[in-house]
Design a protein around this nucleic acid. Sequence first.
RNA 1: GCCCAGGUAGUGUAGUGGCCUAUCAUGACGGCCUGUCACGCCGUCGACACGGAUUCGAAUUCCGUCCUGGGCGCCA
Length: 429
Amino acid sequence: MRIAIQDVTPETDYAEIIGWVHEIRDLGGLAFFIVRDRTGLIQVTIPKKKAPEAVVEAAKEVSRESVVRVAGTVKAIEKAPGGRELVPEELEIVSLAASPLPLDVAEKVSAEMDTRIDSRFLDVRKPRVGAIFFIRSVAVRAINEFLFSRGFINITTPKVVAAATEGGTELFPIAYFEKEAFLNQSPQLYKQMMMAAGCEKVFEIGPIFRAEEHNTVRHLNEATSLDVEVSFADHNDVMQLLEDLIIAVYRRVTEDCADQLATLGVDLTVPATPFPRISYAEAIEIANRTVPEKISFGDDLGTAAEKAIGEYIGQHYFIVDWPTAIKPYYAMPYPENPELSKAFDMMHPRMELSSGAQRIHQHDLLVEQIRAKGLSPESFEFYLKTFEYGMPPHAGWGLGVERLIMTMLNLPNIREAVLFPRDRHRLTP
RNA sequence: GCCCAGGUAGUGUAGUGGCCUAUCAUGACGGCCUGUCACGCCGUCGACACGGAUUCGAAUUCCGUCCUGGGCGCCA
């Protein structure tokens, strides 16, 4: 009966493990294998003179990264990793790995991102890389549990859509029988429609597609978005929700991923609350102190500005009260000052993580705003229709899951947070 | 889209006109080794992205192609 490597303790008498051969150190009469499974590493020690002949034969044949089944007695040995080692009575090569390997899983030599992604399955075998995706899984689970505990329901919306949903980004056109279609840039319109459907609190974690030809460490052409929409809520309500969610995720990861964080060398601290809230006007004022190119009211915040503000604030923060002109048409303008809207961005010092707003729920105002952006209300008919038959006031946000993981774990490149990144040049694996 | 930097053994690198039948590490293969833990030691193997040009001579300069990394813009 196979047991997990982490469950083999110095007190264990006998164990059978299955895993990958991480390292081989052959001293002649004595050989050491380090065997790895998802849970950890164990030293397998083969005294060639005493070991069964079949074990010695298999040990001679085995290559690094082969899958092996090892059964034998466990010895408590202080100098072995984990304080124990396995002395095999049986050693079976379950699946022999070819040689040489496309990259070094034991990380004696590094590999470039391109090489790593080409052989991502091997790359993820590295304990450090595997740790990232374990943590990502825990984070996503924490998001789900947090939102379910707050009464949300999970929805799934189409990724193949008929038209650009909000403008502002390039879409990937696809062939859909005799029609033109696109990959969805965001579930924005659909989650709002579910407010009209009376669902009140919805969320979705799913892929979004942007056909931007960017070439940066913080953009992907296929990303994962956490989208939330809440009825009878305003922008302040959903900002609080977002802040609570970030805290819940950080807390869960610090609690449940101590080993993985240690593997990554990340000393994770739960962000202090409340997150500072600065207005867009304050934000450009802060940026203008250090950024050479002057930012005027109505300009978008560039990378340099984001960086300058992030350094100044030094933690997660919100930028609120954005000019209506530079936010999407569905953001609710302040009635007393329609130049500004109830829109916000939630920032990590390194980059934007989320943006959201209270939405316009009045049909006529929405049509007006769509026109003001130079878009045609006719192409949004299916969406606008839902505003004519009892659309509740609502607010929401979207959060980039990869960016959340990247900033939480201080990863240098967003591709580190995706198993199989889609960027400007990569379509496989 | 604009701009910058690159492409050298399986992997990561050194090498900016002759000293290069190309450095080092890791790896693979063979040998020695019973306590390694980046095991050690000896030996062997393995590469200048592709095409063209300049030159007595090109990994090195130039042009083109393909590929990659990154900055900005746009965007989450």
